[in-house]
Each structure stands twice: as structure tokens, then as C-alpha cells.
């Protein structure tokens, strides 16, 4: 299939990109193109202008301070999965990356593109939520910062306003442990359901803090605060993880699609939480069914 007609622009600065987006209401931003190009060829999208941001150098920058990792929106999945400094600062990024599609897609696809596309089963939105990331947005009204939880608003829906561009993602350097688990039909497919977790252990060995995120289980990645609350202040153990996993599944109303029914997702979601926590806390016995 062939794309419908469109105009193409390749700005070299963020300011130029914002001007183009302001001038063309139905323009689309082209980053890695891994979702947009198929949509064009299937004629599911017909923007009048493609604004190709690949030539804007600053969007590919990675910077790391003792407290913060900042990834430009154009940083490719492959770099995130292979740059030891990135995974060292935020281990969840390194754990999740191998689950994203395949080599050729990881080479082109970008973290900003994935976040802006907002597929509810994608890995990066869940990772950003679990890792407490903040989105750095540029737009006609100036820059603004939006925490991950306020950024993903629904299926293919984000807090980005017309004319805005996601410029970078800021992660606090992780102080705790991380775990990641998902089930997909084939390795690299979008997850049917998955979990991303971070756990901070206090000096007493108890959970000082935890973030438990499910993805593929709702219209966006969701924190499971009841599970987090259950973990807080407790000493990690298999029984605790099972309880937290059960709490994580409570009240879920997951979607159904061709590959997994709502019932499947409801049933497997707590398993993913338990396994992600078991990996994070090095409790292999908690990976197994009771």
C-alpha cells in the first residue's frame, strides 16, 4: 500500500519545528517512523505535512548527572538498551528494552516517539511511570514539564497539546531495585499484559518505597497503589509478593482484543507483578505458582 499525498519538511532546530507545527494544524511529527509510516501506508493517517525532526541534533542528546538522566526524545531504543551508563542510572530502561520489537525497529524507533504515540501496551510509557520520569515539552506557550502519570491519558492519547513537541524525558537516577515482566504472543510483539516495578529497600532491609505499574491492562499504564502500600514498610518475602500481586489485580477492567481476552489479562496481570517483584528482589521462589 502507498501513502496518500503529503508535504515534507525537515527542520534543523526545535524552533523551526514548532513554527511548522503552528503553521499546519494537521501536521504529524516524524521521529523513528515505526508507527507513523505503517499508518500512512495503510491510509489510516493522512496529514498534510510531515515534520521530520530527525535532523534536530539536540533531540538526540543524552546527559547524566549524579541525580538525573535526561534522554532526548530522539534517542533510539537501541542506544537505551546498549549504553551501559543509561541502564546503570535507570536499570528499568535496560530491563525493558529487549522486549521492544526487534533489532531493526529498535535501531530506528525512538523513546519520544513511543511515548507520544501512547500505545497502552508499549513498554516505555510503563517504564517512565514506574521510574518516576518527567516529560519535557516544548510548545508555542513555552516549555513545560509533565510527570509521566499525567502524560499518558488513554489509547493513543497524551497530554501533548496541538503544536507541542516532546523534547526530552528526565529520570531520577534510581536508588533502588527494578523488575520487569511481560507476556507477548511472540518475542517482540506488543505485550498482552506486563508489569514494571521499582522497589527501594531501607537500611533495615524493608521496602521503603515501591512503584508497581501494569501495562496492557488498561487504556494506559497504571500504578497499583494498593500493592505499593502493601509492600511499604514490609520485609520482602514470597508471601508478601503474592499478596501485593493480588492487590495489583483488584478492580482491573482490562480490554479484550484478538490476542488476549479481558479475562486473560485479569488473570495474568498479578502473575506479571509477582514475577517482576520477584526479579527485583531476587526472590526466585516467588516466581513460581503457589
Amino acid at each position: 500500500m502507498k501513502a496518500p499525498p503529503f508535504a515534507y519538511a525537515a527542520p534543523s532546530t526545535i524552533a523551526e519545528a514548532l513554527a511548522l507545527l503552528a503553521a499546519h494544524e494537521d501536521a504529524k511529527v516524524l521521529a523513528g517512523g515505526q508507527s507513523l509510516m505503517p499508518a500512512l501506508n495503510l491510509r489510516l493517517a493522512a496529514p498534510s505535512v510531515l515534520v521530520d525532526i530527525n535532523g534536530i541534533a539536540e533531540l538526540s542528546e543524552v546527559s547524566l548527572t549524579p541525580t538525573e538522566l535526561r534522554l532526548g526524545a530522539l534517542v533510539r531504543h537501541k542506544r537505551i538498551g546498549t549504553d551501559a551508563a543509561i541502564a546503570g542510572a535507570v536499570p528499568l530502561l535496560g530491563l525493558a528494552c529487549p522486549h521492544i520489537a526487534h533489532g531493526p525497529i529498535r535501531s530506528r524507533g525512538t523513546i519520544g516517539g513511543s511515548l507520544s504515540h501512547a500505545d497502552p501496551a508499549a513498554e516505555w510509557p510503563a517504564v517512565c511511570l514506574a521510574a518516576d520520569a518527567v516529560m519535557e515539552i516544548r510548545g508555542p506557550a513555552g516549555p513545560r514539564h509533565v510527570p509521566a502519570e499525567a502524560f499518558s491519558l488513554g489509547v493513543f492519547t497524551t497530554a501533548l497539546r496541538p503544536g507541542e513537541l516532546l523534547a526530552a524525558i528526565r529520570f531520577p537516577v534510581a536508588r533502588g531495585r527494578a523488575g520487569f515482566a511481560e507476556v507477548a504472543r511472540r518475542h517482540g510483539d506488543f505485550a498482552m499484559v506486563g508489569a514494571a516495578v521499582t522497589v527501594e529497600l531501607g537500611p533495615d532491609g524493608r521496602c521503603a518505597d515501591a512503584r508497581v505499574v501494569l501495562f496492557g491492562a488498561s487504556d494506559r499504564p497504571i500504578r497499583r497503589r494498593a500493592a505499593e502500600e502493601r509492600l511499604r514498610g514490609q520485609a520482602p518475602g514470597a508471601a508478601l509478593l503474592r499478596e501485593a500481586a493480588s492487590l495489583a489485580a483488584e478492580g482491573l477492567d482490562p480490554p479484550s482484543d484478538l490476542h488476549a481476552s479481558a479475562e486473560y489479562r485479569r488473570r495474568v496481570a498479578p502473575v506479571m507483578v509477582r514475577r517482576a517483584l520477584a526479579d527485583a528482589l531476587s526472590l526466585p521462589e516467588a516466581r513460581l505458582a503457589a
Binding site: V183, R242, A260, E263, R267, P270, V273, A290
Partner: peptide, 15 residues
């Protein structure tokens, strides 16, 4: 024999 069909056949146990 996809995972959804198989899981329907398998009795559920607590998480």
C-alpha cells in the same frame, strides 16, 4: 493453541 485458549483450559490457582 495460543495462550488465551490454553489458559481457559487450565484451572485458575491463586496468584
Amino acid at each position: 493453541l495460543g495462550p488465551d485458549r490454553l489458559l481457559r483450559l487450565i484451572p485458575e490457582t491463586p496468584a
